[in-house]
Design a protein around this nucleic acid. Structure first.
Lengths: 151, 151
DNA sequence: TACTTAGTCTATCAAATTAGTATATTTTGA
DNA sequence: TCAAAATATACTAATTTGATAGACTAAGTA
């Protein structure tokens, strides 16, 4: 049930860009360094994300990437679907990749997996990059509070 | 986010055996036929399931497999974990395969994936083979009603 | 006892996927 | 024109997936 390294890198890169939203472009090198992703691998990933409409790019000196939409318009589910394919645990319950099966109507396993897919989608198709950024801030704040309290 | 064919076959085989629970052994051949699984592949799968304590076997003429526990004591999550590994989308949120990461406390992605893992586990670690069998019966009943109504 | 049936065990394999590298090209700003 | 940075392909090593093959063991039965 795992997402791939590529998928994880894609999300981390987008979170990184979301944290810098509104502050101009960020270069591949910088993202690679701060997120600890192999540069050449990240190039490919960012290119796919650009072609899929998540990013804008600027070439040449002073170039780099930036989000093409506001981070509250980018949902994690979209990113994972692009890089890793359907969220569904079985092809027969995927909306995007649906493969017909003759026993569908009475299949007990399918029925369970529909529930699982819905539960995953309920989270990943609603949470945005902005939400993730808020979670990060929230956690940092809480750590700071704990730190202050402990002094 | 998919489960493997092997995992799917394992669950289907166990559901098949659950439907025959209390009626003696079932042979690999028969399960393979009714679930449309390659026989030699299924042999391996059933052997793993036996070694993991899901099944009992009887060798020689009149032999076959049967559940080692009542189907209401076997949860889908256990089966998937055995065959496909952790339910968690990222290793850092897996209870069984937990890999430590330095940024854990403030990682926004991790925090989301914890929620996803919990949502998946909430379903798969509670639903049993008996529950799946009931779903099958329920669906058949409903289809029958529809059929009767249409006559 | 010999034969058949059915599970057990281990090895092997082709294809696909994953996680990258490598290299050359194009665009842009200074 | 030079350097920086994205773009575009091609390639590859390792691992995983989805099987297949064959020899072996145990149990019932004629």
């Amino acid at each position: 049930m795992k997402i791939s390294k590529k998928g994880e890198y894609a999300i981390r890169a987008l979170i990184n860009l979301a944290l810098n939203y509104g502050k101009g472009v960020t270069q591949i090198q910088d993202i690679a360094k701060s997120e600890d992703i192999p540069v050449k691998f990240l190039e490919q990933i960012l290119l796919s994300l650009k072609n899929a409409g998540f990013l804008q790019s600027k070439r040449g000196k002073g170039g780099g990437y930036l989000l093409d939409r506001s981070p509250d318009k980018i949902k994690l589910g979209e990113i994972i679907r692009l890089i890793d394919g359907p969220l569904a645990p079985l092809a027969c319950v995927s909306i995007t990749d649906h493969v017909q099966c003759s026993k569908e109507a009475t299949c007990g396993l399918r029925s369970v997996m529909v529930d699982v897919k819905d539960a995953i989608s309920e989270i990943l198709d609603h949470i945005t990059l902005t939400d993730v950024c808020k979670r990060i801030e929230g956690k940092k704040d809480r750590r700071l509070e704990t730190l202050m309290y402990n002094i």
